[in-house]
Amino acid sequence: MQRRKFLGLGAGIFAVAATAPSMLMAENYRKALPKVWKIKNDEKSKGEDLTGVNAAIKAVFGSDKVEEGKIMLKAPEIAENGAVVPVSFKAEGAKKIALLQSADPEALVAIFDVPERGIPDYSVRIKMQQTGHVVVVAEIDGKLYKAEKKVKVTVGGCGG
């Protein structure tokens, strides 16, 4: 009897411990989705092939049905230095935003989770080894939206 009680209690605690992190704690997508970071771009397409980008979108969001709009994306038309390409984007109401590109060996650059007090308005600097498309996908009210911009890179940024 006592043992049974103890086991029941144990299971209860375990259930709480198992569900709590996903609700309270942040998500490290390097650990949660290890495979999505390895989805390759076709480098021979010179940044024009978005197959890898689309596959990564599907792997991150579970769908690749995207609509245009709702995202403001800023990236330079021509980047003289591919090692430092400033990219900024806003997506009001977004809960999750993925930043991708078609220029580097793999498609995914970053996944942003927007916490309750977070504002989906971000600026980062990325590397692009050749000309390619920068793609931002945001999940807003359960729907996926996309913005895309082509960046011409004159000196690649992945050669080091």
């Binding site: 390409v85 007090r117 977070g118 590397k127």
Partner: peptide, 11 residues
């Protein structure tokens, strides 16, 4: 208030 998972392609 901010959270991001990142890759090798950040500068």
């Amino acid at each position: 208030v901010f959270e991001v998972s990142t890759s090798q392609f950040l500068s």
